[in-house]
Design a protein around this nucleic acid. Structure first.
Lengths: 223, 223
DNA sequence: ACAAAAGTGTTCAACTTACACCCATGG
DNA sequence: CCATGGGTGTAAGTTGAACACTTTTGT
């Protein structure tokens, strides 16, 4: 006779276990477009699908540590700052076994992070955020959507987009980045006013050449 | 010879697994104070410590499902709305084994949810949010702190505090609730203006008796 | 009738939005 | 020299903050 399970949800040695992965939505800004970094893997499930870089947490690491390790391993990117976005726990989200995933987002400058093919990666590429592949592995389309929303919301209060631009950039470049993230047009004068009020930029005095109008180059204050 | 692990973080059948729990920060509003619901368990680790209601996810359920089940089992509360707050993955956060937890927050009216001692619960009680026990189980002190911040931030844009009040309430009661969550004093007239602008309240025409001044009772619009 | 709490408007400052022209540079 | 994009200011509307007295009810 099957023993009726007591309603005791304390963790016991034999509590159910599953694998845990970190999936990282790396955003970049390239060709005046907000991009997201996707890979095709040469091993595992979904080998023919684009997916976010991600991988399984191991015994002695935090998920943040895992995210760092995995991202380095799949892309070579190092010392990237992450933030948690959301947990996905649908029982059938992974074809092989029960796996829950935590999504992170990160911002990088593609110029400083050239793409190289590391082992187990078949393809790696930046995709326009509003033009990602139709069929993606797992629930990564949803994860990207949620991460993009998270980024939009963060843009409003905190100001975390420095990482997406090279050290020196022009104000129109910064404005275009904002417009890309938010998906809307901003007024040039009002945008500049807001940015200057924040008092976070330093005019280097240099002008960017090759562009009509001769825009000044700025960089973020502090270090 | 130990086989060197390839840097392949794909999920495999033998990928590391751990238990996953949901911990729920249930907020209530009682005696004009914002409270959080804590339990002492009669089984498992930390039996002498207050802790958040929570428990382990099982094979065929989502974490949200788990949170619902666990909360019902430990408190009898049903059909509560949750939102994810954060994931905690420190390898040594649980004394028995590797366990990661996802925290949720929920809002209830204590009047509608009388506390009863369910099985495996030794004590259950509402605690003032700014006067929680010194020693708590696991990292629950941190989790409560993060959940409270989450609630504060949510209060600013979305308006999700209806669940903390009885169906009919006075504006001073609502204001006191806001002040409790935010931890600051608000101007009566400005508060009323803001709330009325939102156009979410309906004046029932009734007055609450037993209180000098004879305040009107309001309720949220729609259903 | 007195004490306690509810209810009510206005002013000022700060911020947000809309809007048009001149200047610098590249071709 | 002309086309392209960069840079600048002001006025109107909106929002947020400060502030005191009258009305209602309980005791």
């Amino acid at each position: 006779m099957k023993k009726k399970q007591l309603h005791n949800f304390q963790v016991r040695p034999d509590s159910f276990e599953c694998s845990v992965t970190a999936d990282i939505a790396v955003f970049g800004y390239l060709d005046n477009k907000l991009k997201i970094l996707l890979t095709k893997r040469s091993v595992g499930g979904y080998t023919n699908h684009w997916m976010l870089p991600g991988g399984a947490m191991e015994k002695e690491e935090t998920l943040e540590g895992c995210a760092n390790k995995v991202l380095f391993s799949l892309t070579g990117f190092r010392e990237i700052h992450f933030e948690q976005v959301k947990v996905y726990t649908s029982p059938d989200r992974h074809p092989l076994k029960r796996v829950i995933t935590v999504s992170y987002y990160a911002l990088v400058q593609p110029e400083n992070h050239p793409l190289t093919l590391k082992s187990n990666v078949e393809e790696i590429s930046w995709f326009d955020i509003d033009n990602i592949p139709e069929k993606m592995g797992f629930d990564h389309r949803q994860i990207i959507h949620d991460a993009h929303n998270f980024l939009k919301n963060n843009l409003k209060d905190r100001l975390i987009v420095g990482k997406l631009l090279p050290e020196k950039f022009t104000l129109p470049e910064l404005q275009n980045l904002y417009e890309n993230i938010l998906g809307l047009q901003l007024d040039k004068r009002n945008f500049r006013k807001r940015i200057f009020q924040m008092d976070i930029l330093l005019n280097t005095g240099e002008k960017k050449s090759g562009i009509k109008g001769g825009p000044f180059l700025y960089r973020y204050k502090n270090q």
